[in-house]
Design a binder for these strands. Structure first.
Length: 786
DNA sequence: CAGTGAGCGAGCTTCCGCTTGACTT
């Protein structure tokens, strides 16, 4: 008889635990929170600020199952996670299941091992109401911010927008990064490198060296090369320094997302989906965590595995401490459940992600890598004194340019590098591959082979990727492991930011080479600042950001979350009352909401006047319209209706010029007639199009809507007709509304404008179906719907 | 799929954190 009911948050966890606990225990899952504020209303009393909770529709089934089980059980154990949210889940369960304190036990465990769970069962406690209240404060604050701020945006910017403690700050990061990039002025400088040979030794013995200082101008660089013509190069000092590198800690949600993005090219949500699979199949521990902690079991397992695979000297058991801001550490780090499984069954994505997790975990338990770094200073013996003080002998940093430096790195013991190598976001400068220097000693004379001065450009900040944004958010303590991926999706769904590519700028640069006694100058071309798959702010994102920043600077502050977290902590410790905290926040916040809401709308957020129309004298302006950014000629109070044009792709409200704006009104234009009806070129929501006889054909990107000819337009119309033709497999005399079509997912039936899926068995016969057969599918589907 | 928008104004949109499904158009 199962006298005990244990409730955990995750069903996969429930399954594992049930095995450990044996017959007397039934383990069920709550599937996260079971109760929340109402979905469509603010659900907070405006006077008392008391929250009103309800069980959402999709949770009713789970709750009723839990209720039945709880009634039958002699004892209920609440084993949700040991953090703010977990404690609240247990409290809500108590309330909803009508559990009494006598029968209820709150237990927690940090790792899912038999001993940890049995130990937890031995030491039950009661629900910590302080922790629950900290969660209520968190929940109510987020609801107030989200549901009071969003409507302000609907009125002042555009309907259906949203604002929130986390998402608005995430957008701010992206907008500000973009502005930094725009403001960045690239400067050129000259880097000098040299190749020497060692005449004393036999065979090939090249030495590559760099000048430790850089020149700001071409003249300086040339002057330096000139002086090198008759110079001597002598080894001045050889120093050897041992370095050691330590492995990165095991994965958390955020670091897993970053590495999977860099190494496997996964998006943030893709990583989470694949990880979820691995978790459900028992391959890895829980994937939403901020902890770098590993269980004793895993550390012991890793040690054994590393002994076996690499040998004893590669093993170094370590324990990591979490430093992330606001970390709650309810779980372990993300790691393989069994280190002895070096690989698993699954699809290629699963296998690759697992491999990454295995290697990272193993490396974290391995020895440091030892590196010997050799630095050789090569003194330049100039034949004559410098021509002038400012040129030739000094670099822009004011340091003497009178020696080269050659460095060599040799890995003397690879340690953890044998398993895993962490990537970085810095794509520009690839670290030189480890190179070995020939043996040199003080006083050795080197022969100059070539010295080159290469023009380089300082690079500005780089745009965020999904993963690097997560990294930044974690650093600021904004968002939680369970919300990183959804937040990234939200800000893209709201069209505040888009993922896209940025074309680089082509730059010409010079390379001056001194070889023999001649200096040759060459120019080359290079593309600078090219980026792929980066987060770019949209006009709406920029306008919303600037608007919120102006009226709600406190909430947009990067420290806002960290600040409220401190207050939540005080509530959790019982040192502050949650209602008092919320009241004090609301007292300052609500009046600003009211005031902002009632500002007269003579100037919409983000509106900007570009100038006056050259012939009519009407004002030309840009603003956010009902469907996004638009250009407008004239104003609403004018007796003529204003004219509108959609902002074209690639142009933005901040930078569009009057001339560019006026171009847009040259569309729609009629290019001629075809089959008795006009052919019109226009541009709409989905880009430029050709319109003819109520039908639309999108204009390919290669065609310019302003110069497309009638002939080209007709060609496109005919192409489209041909394609349409191919899509229609069958039509029927019985009823012209019935058609068999060929689509992306195979043949389907279209009746009266609605699409119907046909059974797989009919696919082969598509093309020779009878009207009756088709009608059957339609009526069957229609009756099923009802 | 849809190529709009300036007002007679319906009714709707929205947060962050816990957790998994049921869907293929």
């Amino acid at each position: 008889m199962q006298d005990n009911l244990v409730i955990v948050e995750s069903p996969a966890k429930a399954k594992t635990i049930e095995k450990f606990l044996g017959k007397d225990y039934k383990v069920m899952s709550s599937y996260g929170h079971i109760r929340d504020l109402k979905k469509k209303e603010i659900s907070i009393d405006p006077d008392t600020l008391e929250p009103f909770y309800e069980i959402p529709e999709e949770k009713k089934k789970v709750v009723s199952e839990l209720r039945t089980a709880a009634k039958k059980a002699g004892k209920v154990w609440l084993a949700s996670d040991e953090d703010r949210e977990g404690e609240a889940i247990s409290w809500h369960l108590c309330e909803v299941l009508g559990l009494d304190e006598e029968k209820t036990n709150r237990i927690v465990f940090h790792e899912i091992t038999k001993s940890a769970i049995l130990e937890a069962i031995e030491t039950p406690r009661h629900i910590d109401m302080n922790l629950v209240n900290a969660q209520q404060a968190r929940r109510v604050l987020d609801r107030l911010v989200g549901f009071r701020l969003s409507p302000v945006l609907w009125r002042k910017v555009k309907p259906a927008l949203s604002a929130g403690r986390v998402q608005s700050v995430a957008v701010r990061l992206i907008v500000e990064r973009e502005r930094e990039i725009q403001a960045f002025q690239s400067e050129s400088f000259y880097r000098v490198s040299a190749v020497f040979t060692l005449p004393q030794t036999q065979g090939a013995s090249e030495v590559k060296a760099e000048l430790p200082v850089r020149f700001r101008s071409h003249e300086e660089a040339i002057a330096f090369l000139e002086r090198c013509k008759d110079a001597t190069f002598t080894v001045e000092a050889v120093t050897k320094k041992p370095l050691h590198r330590t492995p990165a800690p095991p994965f958390t949600t955020s670091t897993l997302q970053q590495e999977a993005s860099r190494k496997l090219g996964f998006t943030v949500s893709q990583t989470m989906m694949v990880a979820q699979h691995l978790y459900e199949n028992g391959h890895i521990t829980y994937m939403r965590t901020d902890s770098v902690n590993l269980s004793k079991l895993c550390i012991a397992d890793s040690k054994e595995e590393i002994f076996k695979l690499y040998g004893e000297k590669y093993s170094k058991p370590r324990n990591y401490k979490t430093h992330a801001k606001g970390a709650q550490e309810a779980h372990e780090a993300i790691r393989p459940t069994y280190m002895s499984n070096t690989e698993i069954e699954g699809n290629s994505q699963e296998r690759r992600l697992y491999d990454l997790i295995w290697k990272r975990t193993a490396a974290s338990q391995m020895a440091d890598a030892l590196i010997e770094k050799t630095t050789v200073n090569i003194r330049i013996g100039f034949a004559e004194a410098p021509i002038s003080d400012t040129l030739a002998n000094k670099s822009n940093q004011g340091e003497a340019a009178d020696y080269f430096v050659a460095t060599g790195e040799v890995i003397t013991f690879d340690g953890f590098l044998k398993a895993y190598h962490e990537s970085t976001d810095d794509e520009n400068e690839m670290e030189d591959v480890t190179h070995i220097l020939p043996v040199m000693k003080e006083g050795d004379r080197l022969e100059r082979s070539a010295i080159t001065a290469t023009e380089r450009f300082t690079t500005g900040p780089i745009r965020y990727t999904e993963a690097s944004l997560v990294h930044k958010m974690e650093e600021l303590g904004i968002g939680r492991p369970s919300t990183y991926a959804p937040t990234i999706s939200t800000i893209q769904q709201r069209e505040y930011v888009q993922k896209g590519d940025k074309k680089g700028v082509e730059r010409t640069f010079t390379i001056d080479t001194l070889k023999g006694n001649k200096i040759t100058t060459a120019t080359k071309k290079d593309v600078v600042g090219k980026e792929k798959g980066k987060l770019l702010p949209s006009d709406v994102g920029i306008v919303v950001n600037d608007f919120l920043l102006e009226y709600f600077p406190d909430i947009m502050d990067y420290g806002f979350t960290a600040n409220v977290e401190k207050q939540f902590d005080r509530i959790a410790e019982g040192k502050a009352k949650w209602t008092a905290m919320i009241k004090s926040f609301y007292k300052d916040f609500e009046p600003v909401v009211e005031r902002t809401m009632n500002i007269r709308a003579e100037h919409k957020a983000g509106e900007r006047e570009l100038g006056l129309h050259p012939t009519t004298g009407k004002p030309v302006s840009v603003k956010i319209g009902r469907y996004g950014p638009i250009v407008q000629i004239g104003s609403a109070d004018d007796k003529d209706k204003p004219q509108f044009a959609q902002m074209p792709a690639g142009k933005s409200m901040e930078t569009i010029t009057l001339e560019e704006a006026l171009e847009l009104f040259k569309l729609p234009r009629t290019v001629g007639e075809f089959e008795g009806s006009p052919v019109v070129i226009g541009t709409g929501r989905f880009g430029p199009y050709v319109q003819h006889n109520k039908k639309y054909v999108s204009l390919p990107k290669t065609d310019d809507p302003l110069s497309v000819t009638l002939d080209r337009a007709i060609e496109l119309i005919k192409e489209k007709r041909e394609q349409e033709e191919k899509r229609h497999l069958q039509q029927f005399d019985e009823d012209p509304k019935m058609e068999v079509m060929s689509g992306r997912y195979g043949p389907y039936i279209c009746y009266d404008g609605k699409n119907y899926r046909m059974p797989k068995a009919m696919h082969a016969k598509a093309g020779q179906l009878t009207f009756e057969e088709c009608m059957q599918v339609v009526t069957a589907a229609d009756s099923k719907k009802k």
